[in-house]
């Protein structure tokens, strides 16, 4: 019991150390510092994975059954997705912006995660677990898109002001962030679609009357899907690549955060399964 508390805070500590290196790299631009930062983040993600396994063994189910379990899994997925991108694109300037989100969410999860909450019988279901995983993966992709869009706007602000600020010096290029954000939204939307489809399927399995009352969570996810689908559509058809797409991505992520935390905790009745 004590061990698992220790591990969950060690994970946060490891992310903080990695963040320090990423920030240092971003400020100095020394490639040498960046290698070390990447190694530290890999280490932290490894530790986090160990924590998730520990949690799964301890509770006897995948850590996706309540919102705080879902957060920590989701955070690990951000980390893993980001690391794979970093490795693929050889670009480490995003780390300094992604890690604060990871650290905040992981801390939230650590503080309120209840190891002994009772699990409704209906949730002992593989399809349900895949459903949650898919939705979480899509959220991880949306975070990447959010960060990319944010950096797009910061860089484009420097360019508009014709000032050689730190973003101008350190960030790669507008085209890079635009295509990264686009790529992440595509992936996220695909996962979200699969996740929602599986959710509907599980809902029908669980009870015939599941969709009789309107679940706020269901509405929230529907809206999320619509926002990102619109993002995709206008980018293709309306010539919205660049700044407008970035703003839509920011809005989408704001909504995701809102629905993830507020709707799940405060508004939802049906999705709490109580």
């Amino acid at each position: 019991m004590l061990a698992i508390y220790l591990v969950q805070w060690l994970v946060v500590a490891a992310y903080v150390v990695a963040l320090i290196y990423y920030v240092r790299f971003f400020r100095s631009g020394k490639p040498v510092a960046s290698t070390r930062a990447g190694q530290l983040l890999t280490l932290a993600a490894g530790l986090h994975f160990f924590y998730l396994i520990h949690l799964a063994v301890f509770t006897g189910h995948l850590p996706v059954t309540d919102v705080f379990e879902a957060i920590t899994t989701c955070v690990w997925l951000f980390g893993a997705v980001y690391l794979s991108l970093e490795w693929r694109l050889r670009e480490r300037s995003l780390g300094a912006f992604i890690l604060p989100i990871i650290i905040i969410l992981q801390t939230v999860s650590n503080l309120w995660l209840d190891f002994n909450h009772e699990l409704p019988a209906i949730l002992h279901n593989v399809i349900f677990e895949i459903h949650v995983l898919m939705v979480l993966l899509s959220y991880a992709a949306f975070v990447i898109s959010f960060i990319a869009s944010l950096l797009y706007l910061l860089l484009s602000r420097d360019l508009e002001r014709k000032s050689l600020g730190i973003f101008y010096r350190r960030l790669p290029s507008l085209a890079f962030f635009d295509s990264l954000s686009n790529f992440a939204v595509n992936i996220g939307l695909a996962f979200l679609t699969i996740g929602v489809a599986l959710g509907i399927y599980t809902g029908i399995e669980v009870s015939e009357t599941f969709f009789d009352s309107w679940d706020p969570k269901f509405l929230a996810v529907g809206l999320t899907w619509l926002i990102y689908a619109a993002h995709l559509f206008f980018r293709r058809a309306g010539g919205w690549q660049g700044k407008r797409a970035a703003v839509v991505s920011l809005v989408g992520f704001g909504w995701v955060l809102f629905s993830f935390l507020v709707v799940s905790l405060v508004l939802s009745k049906v999705h709490q399964f109580q």
Binding site: L155, L159, Y168, S173, L174, A175
Partner: peptide, 8 residues
């Protein structure tokens, strides 16, 4: 350089 920052 600016072109690089816009287009990669």
């Amino acid at each position: 350089e600016v072109a690089g920052k816009i287009f990669g």
